[in-house]
Amino acid sequence: MDKAYILEHGILEQYLLGELTADEQLQVEHVLNIDADLRTEFDTLEANFEKMAFENAINPPKAVKMNLMQNIKASQSKIIPLQKSNPLKIYLYAASGIAACLLVGAFWMYTQLNNTNKQLQIVTEQNELLLKDIDGLMNDLEYTSQYFNIVNSPDTEQYILTGNDLAPNAKVVSYVNHKNKSVIINTKELTQLDADHDYQMWADVEGEMINMGVIDKEKQLLAMNYIDNAESLNITIEPAGGNDHPTVSRLVTNVYLQ
């Protein structure tokens, strides 16, 4: 295949259009490489065909390009991750991540549980204390109501024991109810004693002093033993804890019952 043959038989055109066999193509390419004139001829032919194509161009819809670029991206991203990463590794990473999260979560919940338990314990303790307080207050209330009932009863008579020379400022108010057989005294204005001594109350029955009880230092209002047929009420200073017989020399106050 030489230059004359190529020009005469329109081989360049057929080469351009891709109509030649592989063997013929190689021959044409060989001649084009060595013959500058033929090369120029072919270049012009190519340029003209291209111009013609651009003059007859038709714009394709934009969707075609979008699809194309998406396909290209998909084919790119398909290759890279498959080469670089092992799916088992990804699962292991994911599993260890989840395990770590669970561990942290469990620890956090354990701490929370401990805190809650501590708070619950504190609340329970406080609750017990409050219950005790309420219990105490109820008792007090009951006690006070009882006293109040006695003191307020129309059958109750009031006697005031004023201090003698041994206790000039002392004053004890006693409430005696013969019907209920109860005695209540108010010791608010009784002089404080040291730890080794206590006040003790006695009832005089036909010349004999009968024990009514030791006066509690802590209480202001307290019930004493009611003694039948008492003629007078007497208070003496006795050794701590009380005495079997009154120490008459240390009588601080007395009052006759009418």
Partner: peptide, 14 residues
């Protein structure tokens, strides 16, 4: 590729 598509796709589509 995008640029070449813009340049040549109308001629080729024709």
């Amino acid at each position: 590729l995008s640029q070449l598509y813009d340049n040549y796709s109308p001629a080729l589509y024709g």
